[in-house]
């Protein structure tokens, strides 16, 4: 099934679409390989400083046990690497919230991922693309074993034992910043309010921003509540069963209600009959 079948063993395997197929195995004695598809990174609309077009290699289908370090190790044979970015699906970079401490960043989902590998030299990209699929990349080597399974979970468990004071420190740091931010906001608001007050000469500066907190609460729930209040008021004024036509209407409504129910029941019976639900045994 390998697409390179029958070709010269040292030639890279390039499939239609421009991707080069690199094979990847976990250990040297593994019997089967994953196919990692690589291509130079090329996007029309994106201009991203972290992914320079000429030096970035785009790789898909990277197995779950390959962390960023492992990928860096794997691709360093093609040249020195500047950065590695692994993502769940291809797409633009998000502004990573690097501010958050590691305790508060949500754990990334494990699975197959795509990678953006930024080399230091653009020649490395070509080197990677012309790598033969018959020489598989090896994830776990004697020198640098990759832990999986039980060992990994035990490590994970001991990592999850957080020291209380470190956590406290992280919290304190965040809250400090948050408070500072909030204070600034307050300050700003106050300034705005001050501007709206009369100055010494009795002049008021009129701005677009409205009248601050004094206006009607500008939220959806409040709007709806107001609407309901109106409706209620209107309803209270109405008289029911006063005129003959109103009385007649109620009766008509009653019959209509019965009819509607009758139709519903008929339909239900039809459905049940279709399912042979009337056979008692």
């Amino acid at each position: 099934m390998a697409p390179s079948k029958g070709k010269n063993s040292n030639e890279p395997c390039i499939i239609p679409g421009g991707f080069t197929v690199l094979s990847l195995q976990f250990k040297t004695d593994s019997t089967s390989c994953h196919s990692v598809f690589v291509k130079e990174h090329r996007v029309r609309a994106e201009k991203n400083a972290s992914r320079p077009l000429d030096r970035t290699l785009f790789a898909i289908n990277i197995p779950p046990y390959c962390s960023e370090e492992v990928v860096r190790e794997l691709f360093s044979q093609f040249g020195p690497i500047q950065s590695v970015e692994l993502k769940e699906r291809p797409g633009g970079t998000e502004s990573t919230e690097s501010k958050l401490s590691k305790y508060f960043t949500p754990a990334s989902k494990e699975g197959f991922r795509v990678g953006y590998i930024v080399f230091k030299n653009s020649s490395s990209v070509t080197a990677a693309k012309s790598h033969s699929s018959d020489q598989p990349l090896v994830v776990s080597t004697e020198q640098k074993p990759v832990k999986t399974g039980l060992q990994k979970w035990i490590d994970q468990y001991s990592d999850s034992l957080i020291q209380k004071d470190k956590l406290q420190a992280a919290v304190d740091k965040f809250m400090e910043e948050y408070d500072k931010q909030k204070e600034e906001m307050e300050q700003k608001k106050k300034e705005e309010e001050q501007q709206q007050e009369e100055d010494g000469d009795g002049w008021v500066k009129v701005t677009r921003g409205g009248r601050g907190g004094k206006a009607r609460p500008h939220s959806e729930a409040a709007n709806q509540k107001a609407l309901q209040r109106e409706n209620k008021k209107r309803k209270r004024k109405e008289l029911l069963n006063f005129y003959t036509w109103q009385h007649r209407n109620t009766q008509r409504e009653h019959i209509a209600e019965l009819r509607r129910k009758f139709e519903e029941d008929k339909q239900r019976i039809a459905v049940l009959r279709a399912q042979r639900k009337f056979r008692p045994y």
Binding site: M1, I15, P16, F19, V21, I60, F112
Partner: peptide, 13 residues
């Protein structure tokens, strides 16, 4: 072939 649907797959040409 679709770049977003390649997890654990291989290709046949």
């Amino acid at each position: 072939f679709k770049t977003s649907q390649m997890n654990a797959r291989t290709v046949e040409v």
